[in-house]
């Protein structure tokens, strides 16, 4: 059932007021901490000061934001495509699954921050090593969720498909892949947040642009307002990309989202992982 649009907006308001209130409370506490002098101003700048800086230095931040966003999206797309292809190969071939799984797990447990310098050595100071770190971080959840999704298909449905004689390609295109999409999207939403982290980690290791670089610079200069501003921008980028995926999911899988409970609950649960 499609909710009437008035209902829909009321639904959005009902779902958003709690997180919005929580956010406001955090800002108030932050503000109180700084005005009461509980913490020295050079350690924690006030929210007002931070937002003033955000506005003043906007053009400077904007350039770096764009760099990080670009690296994130590129890493995410590459991880998404490779991850789905890998998952398909693993689901259709036992040999590939048993061969690739341990390697995948190994690649996943290696701390990316520890191998990031290696990519800088290999690929230089450009955007490439950041994209590689983003891909490495985002790849795993895509593979796992897609494999789970492709395997979740009802065995009877596949038997039915066999009696319809469409062959493996049609069975994949019309049954298996669409059935895996809800799982795939869950993985993609985790992946996008990890891709942001990956890009920033890559920038930490060796870079002269991007939000990771901004934070590192601010850190070196003891410029805490700029540090806070950088953190806020990174979070906003992550949240916006996440919401974009959420929107894409709702547009592509209306049958799924309409059956799902409170969107914000899943949003928070997934965002936290």
């Amino acid at each position: 059932m499609k909710p009437v649009s008035g209902d829909r907006w009321r639904g959005v308001a009902e779902r958003s007021w709690r997180p919005a209130a929580l956010l406001a409370a955090c800002l108030v506490i932050w503000h109180l901490i700084t005005v009461t002098g509980l913490v020295e101003a050079y350690l924690v700048p006030s929210p007002g000061k931070t937002f003033d800086l955000l506005v003043d230095k906007w053009s400077y931040l904007w350039g770096h934001t764009w760099v990080t966003t670009y690296e994130t999206i590129l890493g995410f797309v590459v991880a998404g495509v490779l991850g789905v292809l890998m998952a398909v190969a693993m689901v259709y071939s036992r040999t590939i699954e048993s061969t690739a799984y341990p390697v995948l797990l190994f690649a996943q447990v290696i701390p990316k921050i520890a191998i990031a310098p290696l990519f800088v050595v290999w690929l230089g100071f450009g955007f490439e090593p950041k994209v590689v770190v983003a891909v490495l971080m985002a790849f795993f959840p895509v593979v796992i969720s897609t494999v789970t999704g492709l395997k979740s298909v009802d065995a009877e449905m596949l038997e039915l498909a066999a009696t319809m004689g469409g062959g493996p390609v049609k069975t994949f295109a019309k049954i298996r892949f669409p059935a895996a999409l809800p799982h795939l999207f869950a993985g993609l939403k985790v992946a996008i947040t990890l891709a942001v982290t990956g890009a920033v980690v890559g920038e930490f290791v060796g870079s002269n642009e991007g939000l990771g670089y901004v934070i590192l610079q601010a850190n070196g200069n003891m410029d805490t307002p700029m540090l806070f501003a950088g953190l806020i921008v990174i979070s906003v980028v992550g949240i916006l990309l996440f919401l974009l995926l959420e929107l894409a999911e709702q547009l592509m899988l209306p049958w799924h989202s309409s059956r799902r409970g409170a969107a914000v609950t899943t949003l928070l649960a997934k965002g936290g992982s």
Partner: peptide, 22 residues
């Protein structure tokens, strides 16, 4: 169990048979 594809309408679920068979 009916084993229907939940993203397809009733009619499209019926027509799956036709699509698979070309």
């Amino acid at each position: 169990r009916a084993a229907l594809l939940e993203w397809r309408s009733a009619r499209k679920n019926i027509l799956l048979q036709a699509e698979m068979r070309g």
